[in-house]
């Protein structure tokens, strides 16, 4: 390969990397700010009073919490981590982490704008909710020791110390909240950078035609769209418009799999999970939604005429 071509390829790689980063970074910052203010102004006791103990109720609540915290898949990670440090029950956080990037007003609106009130919008909401609920239930049995990174566990212990100090005033607390938000951002941004680098490298090196060639097969097209969602790593607030661009090539069932799976897991959110969870649990968090979304997509392709 001539040197100029390598240089131009590298420039393409940098452009795509910066594109993903610049698009995602406002959302990560917003999530970090929410997290910083939770850290300073939300008392652990308050959270524990409202958090349900019963696993099914907890998972249901977690899957619906995006309606109150409208975050995408970048912003949801620091918020979830902070809530866990404050003692949030396991199933609530997992269901929130997976569902919130879709079950929130902003994404519902953008999906409506792209697809209208149709089976695609309802399917996306219902199946995202179901998968998040199920994975949340499965995680109900996991202990914090085997789930979180040592750093997060240490923070949980610090937060669990009795704290008699009154809630700080807004003037006192805001600089602290901002610094906590900054710390969260700096912690998570490195995973966002690694994820964006990987996604940009995949896009520069792997020809799209290899994925698109399998678009016609009902089963393989579901796999292809899920891989595409994973590689593209687009923000959930806008991925509906991107999915729209594939409606001619791919089956509706595979578009639905793209819309359900992409916001839960993609390259950059997976690397960000590593800042909260131990590697084995990250693997579960990727593989469980992936297999459930795959099952859903393949089942619809093979059995429901309208989705073929």
């Amino acid at each position: 390969m001539p040197t100029t071509l390598i240089l131009e390829r590298f420039q393409t790689f940098v452009t795509i990397f910066l594109g993903i980063f610049i698009e995602a970074v406002p959302f990560l910052l917003a999530g970090s700010l929410v997290s910083g203010f939770i850290e300073v102004f939300l008392k652990r006791e308050t959270l524990l009073r409202f958090a349900p103990r019963q696993p099914a109720v907890a998972a249901l609540m977690g899957a619906s919490m995006g309606m109150i915290f409208p975050v995408c898949e970048c912003g949801v990670v620091p918020v979830t981590r902070r809530l866990y440090q404050k003692g949030l029950p396991m199933p609530v956080g997992i269901a929130f982490l997976l569902a919130a990037p879709v079950i929130n007003p902003v994404v519902i609106l953008s999906t409506y704008a792209a697809f209208g009130w149709g089976p695609m919008l309802w399917g996306r909401l219902v199946f995202t909710f179901l998968i998040a609920f199920l994975v949340g239930l499965i995680f109900a049995r996991a202990t914090p020791q085997e789930t979180f990174t040592p750093a997060v566990q240490q923070q949980m212990q610090v937060a669990a110390l009795p704290d008699a100090s009154p809630r700080p005033s807004l003037r006192q607390g805001t600089p602290r909240a901002l610094a906590a938000a900054g710390d969260d951002f700096l912690d998570m941004a490195r995973y966002l950078v690694i994820g964006s680098l990987l996604a940009a490298a995949m896009q520069t090196l792997v020809p799209q035609s290899t994925l698109l060639a399998i678009g016609a097969n009902p089963v393989l097209s579901v796999v292809a769209m899920m891989l595409l969602a994973f590689v593209l790593s687009i923000c959930s607030t806008v991925d509906a418009f991107v999915a729209l661009a594939f409606t001619g090539i791919f089956t509706p069932a595979s578009i639905l799999a793209f819309l359900v799976f992409g916001p839960m897991v993609d390259i950059k959110s997976m690397t960000m999970f590593l800042g909260v969870f131990q590697r084995r649990k990250v693997a579960y968090l990727v593989l469980l939604p992936a297999s459930l979304a795959l099952l859903l997509g393949v089942f619809l392709s093979l059995n429901a005429g309208a989705w073929r």
């Binding site: 420039q11 452009t15 799209q208 035609s209 698109l212």
Partner: peptide
């Protein structure tokens, strides 16, 4: 460090 440039002909190579 890298001069900013939009996607061009080279990027078309591996896209549909």
């Amino acid at each position: 460090v890298v001069p900013a440039s939009p996607l061009g002909a080279v990027a078309m190579g591996n896209r549909e």
